[in-house]
Simulated scan of single mutants.
Amino acid sequence: MQITVRAAALSVVSNTTLVVAKLAAGLAMGSVSVMSEAVHSGLDLAAALIALFSVRRSSQPPDEEHRYGHGKIENLSALVEALLIFVAVGWIVAEALRELLGGAEVASLGVGFVVMAASGLVNYAVSEHLFRVGRRADSLALQADALHLRTDVYTSASVALGLVVIHFTGASVLDPIIALGVAALILKAAWDLILKSLGPLLDVRLPVQEEKVLREIVESFRDEYVEFHKLRTRKAGPERHIDLHLVVHPDRSLADAHDLADRIEQAVEERWDRTSLLIHMEPCQARDCAGCGNPCRTPPGDRRAGIPERERRGPDREAAGGPN
């Protein structure tokens, strides 16, 4: 089983346990802040299930219907997770306002504190693991799941702290106020997740730093080509898709040009796993000579559309003993 699938499965198990524990504690206490955390964990569970499905699916190779692979399913799942968070925020805010206006009392504070503290510790450990695996595998779905859990860590800590304050002050009004604070934190996490998942869905270019590294890799072969242009990059889940035009000397054979492309592709794939690089070869033209500096047997004045001289000589020049 892939490490990403195992990590997603771990998240499903931990979130299932926490949902049951928080819901039971919240109902026993009559605490909207604890129940809001149960709802949050419920959405974390839904997110974990989505992440589990998406990492399984995105790892499958391209097929007849999906020639570019299934990487974008991770971006789509992250977007769905963010939308689920917005639903949770709406419920939490509604319940908090109802309790704030109704003045409900909170009981069994000790149970709530134990549940929230345990929840924070469990989620911290699981989120650290998900972040680590997600970054290593470049999986947005796992990183989104980890973000959910990390938000849970902060909110669980705030709820536990609030319950302690309520215990010593008797100010039950703090419970819905804390719930509103929890909602604000969750909303911020959802917005960040939307921004992160939308980019690949809209084919936004790779980060500037990654493109800089890519250019450095291509330029490490600079003595074997004239120049490159029309660089395009995008990302789909953990997969990078890159294409560019590479201008080579007109005297270079097709086999040599293909070998050069293979070596560039290999160098790029050694830097990033799951990368697809498409190189379109072009013969150089007279306008490329000024900045070339590479030896070429085709005279600039006799160069037409990058076609090698030997292909333009024709039978008349051959018979006249033209240059070889």
Rank of each mutant, 00 (worst) to 15 (best):
E74N: 09
E270A: 13
N75W: 00
T16D: 04
R274D: 15
I166T: 07
A286Y: 11
L198M: 12
Q266Y: 07
V208H: 08
G322H: 14
S31D: 06
L206D: 13
L45V: 00
L180F: 06
G103D: 03
P238W: 05
E270F: 05
L278I: 12
S220H: 02
I50L: 15
D152L: 10
K230L: 15
I194W: 04
G293D: 01
S119G: 09
I178Y: 00
L187E: 01
E210Q: 15
C289Y: 15
L97N: 00
L147R: 13
F221Y: 14
A141T: 10
R56A: 08
L195F: 12
P62D: 03
D44N: 13
R287I: 11
A9P: 08
A255W: 01
E219N: 14
I279Q: 01
D273R: 15
L244Y: 10
L109I: 14
G42I: 07
I264V: 15
N324Y: 13
V126P: 00
S197A: 15
I178D: 05
D243P: 01
V93G: 05
A189Y: 01
C284P: 06
A184M: 11
H249C: 05
R205G: 04
H66G: 06
S158W: 11
L27A: 09
N15W: 03
K188Q: 08
L83M: 12
R312Q: 09
A236W: 04
V159H: 10
R317M: 08
Q60C: 07
G314L: 08
A28N: 06
L97P: 00
D256R: 05
L195N: 10
E211N: 13
K22R: 06
V12T: 02
L147C: 08
F86P: 04
M35E: 11
E219A: 15
E239W: 14
K188M: 12
T233C: 02
E74Q: 10
E99Y: 05
V213N: 04
H258C: 07
F131G: 02
L278Q: 07
K212G: 14
H249D: 09
D63I: 13
A305N: 15
C292I: 03
A184G: 05
A171T: 12
D273L: 11
D138R: 15
A96D: 01
P207Q: 08
L52P: 05
A25V: 09
V111K: 10
R312G: 02
R304E: 07
D316V: 14
E211Y: 08
R304K: 10
H66Y: 14
